[in-house]
Amino acid sequence: MGLGVKITSRIQKRYGPPFYQPYINVMKLFSKDAITHGFIFDFGTIMAFGGIIATLFFIPIGNWSLYSMNGTILLVVYLMAISSLGMAMATVGSGNPLSSIGISRALTLMLGYELPYIVILFGLIYKYRTSSIVGLVEAQGISWNLFVLPIAAIIAFTALLGMMGKKPFDAPVAPSEIGSGPVVEYGGKFMGMLMLQHAIAIVVEVGLFVNLFLGGADNIFFFVLKMFIVWAIAVMINAIAPRYRVEQGVLFYWKWPLIIAIVQVLFIIF
C-alpha cells in the first residue's frame, strides 16, 4: 500500500512519504485513545475485520492453500459481502448522517460491480467444470485466462477497481464531499482496525484476480509480484481518473461490462 502512495506521488510530481508510512499510521492509530458509539459500533467493526480475515483463508496464495474443496469461489464472494455488511452495521451504530450516505453509496455500488463479476465467475465455473479456486488455477495451467479470455479479464479488472474503491468508482469514500464517507466517526483504534481491514481486503481482491486470470503462481514470490503489477496498474488509473457519481457508476457497470460479460459467457457456453 505504501508503494501505491509512492506511485501516486510520483505521478503527481511529488516525492511522497516513505513506503513504510502505512505501518507507522497503523501503529500510531493503535496508540491513540478511541471513543465508541455503543455495542453495534464495536460489533460492526469487529465483524468487518473478522469477515475479511475469514475470507483470506480461502484464497490460495502461491502454493499455500488451506481449502481446495468445491465451491470455495462462491464462499469467497459471500464472505466479502460480510465485511461490507459489518461496515454498514457500524455506520448505523455511529448515527452520523454523512456515514449513512457513504455506506448507502458503497452498497449501491456493490450491486453494480458484483453483477458483471458474478456473471464472469459463472462463465469460468462452467468452462472448467469446477468451482474451487485451486481447481481453476490448476485448470488454467500455462495458458492464462488473461490470454484465453481477455474480455472477461478486462471486465473483472473493472469490477476490481470498484471493489477496492479506486478512483473512477470511489464515490463511497469521497473526502471532499461527505467527509470520507463510512469512516467519518472512526477514530483512534477503530480507524486502525479499519485500515488493516482495508489492506487485507486489497490482498484478497487482487489475490482472487491473480488466481483466476493470471494463473496463480508456483511460489509466494511470483504471486506477490503478479499482485503488485495488478495493484500498480489500479493505482495508476486511480491517480489520473476523476470520480463517477454513484448512479453513474452503477449505470456504467450495468451497461457495458454486464452486456459484454453476458456475451462472453454465451461464447464460453456455445
Binding site: 471513543i35 473526502p175 467527509g179 470520507s180 469512516v183 467519518v184 477514530g187
Partner: peptide, 10 residues
C-alpha cells in the same frame, strides 16, 4: 507523513 484528514475523529 503529514496528510489532511476530513473529520476531527481521525
Amino acid at each position: 507523513g503529514i496528510s489532511p484528514m476530513a473529520t476531527p475523529r481521525q
